[in-house]
Design a protein around this nucleic acid. Structure first.
Lengths: 184, 184
DNA sequence: TGTACATCAGTGAACGCGCGTTCACTGATGTAC
DNA sequence: TGTACATCAGTGAACGCGCGTTCACTGATGTAC
């Protein structure tokens, strides 16, 4: 049956939100179209009314999730302690334990590296994150802002990836703590 | 037909070598048992003569690949410039372009984080790498060796993961370069 | 040392399963007159 | 304003496919006598 246009747009958004979470939690390969649609409260059929393919949804989900990260940076803007607060929130066990709502770079970048079609949106959004980090935080100097941002981003992503893969709670927490202290 | 015992051991090794490469290149989910066996010059059937399941092979492949990384550290041992050489080799475009023979942490850690059974071997081997980094390289002080090793490892893994996901050669090279300069 | 037989890794067809994707159908909504 | 009809997102069965895994069979090797 036909549905009001606004409901359709709402459902598109719901699929995207669920996909952004499930892709980060389980990876692109392990999150099935049926599961994604279920998370939006629909059966799997109408998926193709919204997206031309699973790969197209992956690309949109990357944009969506990275856009969320970008928006998340706003609240640290023009806070003199913004940088320290951001690093501390990023390198927390809460973030480690919730990949589905966490940093898309830590959760998705490895798979993006294997799928050429996903690199373009990822790269574009990463540039946006980098620019905001440079502008919103207080770095040692204006000249070093870009270098420092790249180094901080790499250290945080690496720490999160390793902390999640490690079985030993003490070591996992140590990785997060050491990298945080190295950055502050 | 029956085969000499040494050939069987050789084939086991061949499957493992191929798996360690293919898992790093394509990810666990995207490397099929059939493909793995083909890379060892066999049909898919006898896989279960060698391994009880694909998951068991994943665990062995992690051990094998991480063991290779560990062995690779030996050549930097007791070279006063060992640390700088290691960081430079790690953060090279050659390494970035060849995940299949590169760092298992950068290639596998995200998926390990999603599969409880794989965390134990990964964690054990990571501890080995960390210990060798502490002992083989010259750090600012003995007391800071562990912190510095953890920070360097995190920065390198993060840089590699991001450099591989990025579409823009200039930015990808910049990430590797900046992190290298930050560590030296 | 020679012969008969048990061993067991490799073969390749087959299994059930879940995947991404397609499609004929439904029926409330929006629109033409 | 009321009526007839076209629209189109959702339904759910079905498609072909490749996956991990199983299995009856093969036949050179190793071993018992």
């Amino acid at each position: 049956m036909r549905y009001p246009a606004e409901e359709t747009a709402e459902k598109h958004e719901k699929i995207l939100t669920g996909a952004a979470r499930l892709f980060r939690d389980k990876g692109f390969a392990n999150a099935s179209v049926g599961e994604l649609m279920k998370s939006a409260g629909l059966t799997h059929g109408p998926f193709y009314n919204h997206f031309p393919s699973k790969e197209a949804l992956m690309a949109e989900a990357i944009e969506f999730a990275m856009g969320g990260s970008l928006a998340g940076l706003e609240k640290y803007r023009s806070d003199p302690d913004g940088k320290a607060k951001y690093f501390t929130a990023y390198l927390s066990t809460a973030h480690r334990n919730n990949p589905g709502t966490g940093c898309p770079m830590a959760a998705m970048a490895v798979e993006v590296g294997r799928e050429a079609m996903l690199k373009e949106p990822f790269t574009r959004q990463l540039k946006g994150v980098l620019e905001k980090m440079m502008r919103y935080f207080r770095w040692r100097s204006k000249r070093s802002a870009r270098s420092e941002s790249i180094r901080a981003m790499s250290a945080m992503v690496g720490a999160m990836v390793l902390a999640r893969a490690v079985d030993d709670e003490a070591l996992s927490a140590e990785i997060l703590r050491e990298v945080r202290q190295g950055l502050l």
